[in-house]
Amino acid sequence: MLNLLFAVQFSNAEEPESPSEAPVIHKACDFRCSATSHKKPCLFYCNYCCKKCLCVPSGTYGHKEEYPCYNNWHTKEGGPKCP
């Protein structure tokens, strides 16, 4: 239920109108990246993935299987794109 809340809550997020505006940091991504020592890149990619997939898995690590879009998006090198 909580995962559905995250997906619904952030599905209507607005994009910044210009590059000078600060990026929107979703509360779900802030929590997802709270336990990492690489907070800045984690937040960047989490927000990027949240914007595309309209979801963020529960917890601070793992649980990607909850959302196939978030789980199956990979970098050119084949690694996971979403934290």
Rank of each mutant, 00 (worst) to 15 (best):
L4F: 10
Y67P: 01
W73F: 13
T36E: 09
L54F: 01
S58A: 11
T75N: 15
G79K: 15
H38Y: 07
Q9I: 07
K40H: 04
V8N: 09
L4N: 12
A35F: 09
F10V: 01
A28K: 03
R32A: 04
E15D: 13
K52R: 15
R32D: 03
N71L: 09
E17S: 13
L5C: 09
P83E: 08
Q9N: 09
P23F: 01
E21H: 07
F10W: 08
K81V: 10
N47E: 07
P83S: 07
V8Q: 12
C29D: 06
L4S: 11
N12G: 02
K40Q: 13
H74W: 00
Y45R: 14
G79R: 13
F44V: 10
T75A: 02
K52W: 03
T60C: 08
K27F: 05
E66M: 15
L2A: 13
A7T: 06
C33R: 02
E17K: 15
H74Y: 10
F31T: 13
F31G: 00
L54P: 00
C55S: 15
K27N: 08
N71G: 01
F44A: 07
K52D: 06
T60M: 10
Y48G: 01
Y70E: 02
C49L: 06
K76A: 14
A22N: 05
E65H: 15
K51Y: 03
L54K: 15
C82T: 06
V8D: 08
H74E: 13
Y61C: 07
S34W: 02
N12D: 07
G59I: 06
N47M: 03
T36G: 10
S37A: 11
L43V: 14
L4R: 12
V56H: 01
V8T: 09
P23Q: 05
C82E: 05
E66C: 06
V8K: 08
C53L: 08
K52S: 10
K40P: 01
P68R: 12
C29R: 00
P83V: 05
S18H: 11
D30R: 14
E17P: 00
P57C: 05
A13K: 07
G59A: 09
E17M: 10
P83Y: 11
C53R: 03
K64F: 11
Y67M: 01
K52A: 11
T60F: 03
P57M: 04
S20H: 06
E21Y: 01
E65C: 05
L5M: 14
C50Y: 01
K81H: 05
T36D: 09
C50N: 13
A28F: 02
L5Q: 10
K40Y: 09
V8M: 12
C42E: 05
P16S: 11
H74R: 15
S34V: 07
E66A: 14
K51A: 14
M1S: 14
E14F: 01
V24I: 14
G78T: 03
V8F: 14
F44C: 03
W73H: 11
G78W: 03
C50W: 00
G79H: 12
P16K: 08
K76G: 02
P68H: 04
Y61M: 12
K51T: 11
F6S: 02
A35M: 13
A35H: 09
S18L: 07
N72Q: 13
F44Q: 12
R32I: 04
C33Y: 02
L5W: 12
P80H: 11
K76P: 10
